[in-house]
Every structure is written in C-alpha cells, then in structure tokens.
Design a binder for these strands. Structure first.
Length: 290
DNA sequence: CCTACCACCTGTAAGC
DNA sequence: TGCTTACAGGTGGTAG
C-alpha cells in the first residue's frame, strides 16, 4: 500500500495488534524482502527474536516498529506491500515474504508483497529535530503534513526554490513526505494547477493553497480508509478503503471534470500517468532553466 | 550541489 | 488462442 493515508491505515492496525507483543519466530520466505538489511537475513532474524514491539510509528510512507530507544524495524510497503494480521493456521499467501509469530501464541503478522519493491530492515534510531528519533534509513525523509511538528512555511519556502515542475516537487519526499501519484494529482486538481508548472513561479499564497489541498485530500482519504482499486491495497484485516469514489482526477481519463465538465485527460509525466482537467488546470509555458 | 532517469519485480489487461 | 506491449498507490543509485 502506498501513499500516506493507506500507510497510516496500516500503521493504526499494527499499533492495535502488535504493540506490546514479543516476537517468538521470524520466517523469511524471500530474501529480497530484507535486501535493505545489509548484514543479511540471519542477522535480521537474530536481532528480532525475543524482542518486544513498543510502538508503531510512521513518517510519510515509512513505518517502523520501535523496539527500544536504540532500534526499530523499518517497514516499507513499496508499490504492493501489505502488513496483515492473520490467524496462526492461515494458509500462506502466494506472495508471503516475511512472517512473525508472537510469544502470546495468538495471531501472526504477515508481510506480503507481490512486486518486492518493499521490505524490512532493522535500523538504529537517530535523533532529529524536536528531539525526535527516527531510523537511520528514514532520516532523509521530510516530515509529512499530518505530523504535529510539520512546518508549512518551511515546505512552501523549499517548494518555491525548486527549479523543477510542481508535481515532481510534490513527489519529492525530502520536501514533504507522504504524497504519491494519486494525491499529487488530486491536490493539483483542487488547487487548479497543472503539474508541469514551474514550482518556483508559484506565489506564496498559491503554494500555501496547494499544501492545504494536499493535506485535506489525504485527511479525507484517511477517514475513508484510504484508496483501493483492488485487493493489493488493504488494511491489516485485508479490507479495502473507499476513497476511490472521492477522487476527482486520478484514473478518470475521459470522464467529466466534476468542477467544469470538460473531459479529464491523461498525460505521461516522469514515466507515469498524470490526470488533470485541461480547462481548470491549463498548462502554461515553462521557463525552467536546464 | 542539483535534477533527471531508470532499474528493480510480478501481474493484469488490452491490442494484434 | 497465444504473443507482445503497456501499465500499476515507490524509490534508490547514479549519470549528467
């Protein structure tokens, strides 16, 4: 599951089901799922056996299971990862990559990932601003707009210094995290900005408005359990979210724009699809210097 | 330093 | 019915 709302849905589920539980067994069924753990799969398991999960945290699209003040298990879902809470006797899913059981003998945690772009690693925690600790591999990720210490003015400032297109900047997780292809298109539609607009040409007020829309659309999506087009995007109980019905542009090529009725178009940008309304979000001539 | 590109995978749907 | 091509909620490494 990918963007902030979907990851937060999973984080909440894990917080409910695994916080306070002690890991009894770790089964790695596909080494690629722990490829980011450089000391290897054996070391990964060894570091987890007998450890208790204190808390489940998130920044942007990254989650981590905090073990203590020094260490955490980073969980990244990539394009197709799922974290599921399953009964002990559940049939292994086709793409089950990692399985944890706990000493209470209750349910197990399954990390399922069709495309294996996601994975887990055990990481040291390092201190960031506001005396907060994050895993080393998450330290380069900016705070997301649902983070109480997120600084809107800092984001607006960074956005406006970028010599690139605004959609590319929205997807840059070092400016603000959590936004992916769906919510970038939805925020741009709400703000009536074409994604190819030079980020540096946005007025402060327009940049603030764009940020507000990004925050609002992700908050609304979270309240609906996230966006699911299929069973790849589900919560820890395997249930889909309902926000796909709240999308105004993403995936709606040739459908009328809910605001003006013109047909939504699809364009290829950064080797992926972008959806926009040609009337509400007119493309302007770029002055990007390259 | 900054920005742009694409490889990394598996599965599905559409086109011929 | 195949076979081929395009595409899918992300990102890290690297080339320029």
């Amino acid at each position: 599951m990918p963007e902030l709302p979907e990851v937060e849905v999973v984080r909440r589920g894990l917080a409910e089901w695994v916080e306070g539980r002690t890991i009894e067994t770790v089964e790695i069924r596909h080494s690629r799922a722990v490829r980011a753990h450089l000391p290897g799969a054996k070391d990964f398991s060894a570091r987890l056996l007998g450890r208790t999960i204190a808390k489940v945290n998130r920044r942007g699209k990254y989650m981590w299971l905090t073990l203590d003040d020094e260490q955490a298990v980073v969980v990244h879902l990539g394009m197709s990862g799922q974290a599921l809470v399953q009964p002990l006797d559940a049939e292994p899913e086709k793409h089950l990559r990692i399985r944890f059981t706990f000493t209470d003998g209750q349910s197990s945690m399954h990390f399922v990932d069709q495309r294996t772009f996601g994975g887990m690693r055990v990481d040291e925690l390092v201190e960031t601003d506001h005396a907060e600790k994050v895993p080393v591999s998450v330290a380069h990720i900016a705070r997301d707009p649902l983070d109480e210490n997120f600084d809107p003015n800092l984001f607006v400032k960074k956005l406006r210094t970028k010599n690139t297109e605004v959609k590319r900047a929205l997807l840059d997780q070092t400016l603000m995290s959590g936004v992916g292809n769906i919510y970038a298109d939805e925020a741009l539609w709400r703000a009536q900005i074409h994604g190819a607009t030079d980020a540096s040409t946005l007025k402060v007020a327009k940049a603030q408005e764009l940020l507000r829309h990004a925050t609002e659309v992700m908050t609304e999506a979270l309240a609906q359990g996230g966006t699911s087009f299929d069973f790849l995007y589900v919560n820890v109980n395997g249930e889909s979210g309902y926000f796909s019905r709240g999308l105004n542009a993403y995936g709606r090529e040739n459908e009328p724009c809910p605001r003006c009725g013109n047909l939504i178009i699809r364009e290829v940008f950064m080797n992926r699809s972008s959806f926009s309304c040609p009337k509400c979000q007119p493309r302007r001539k770029s002055t990007l210097t390259r």
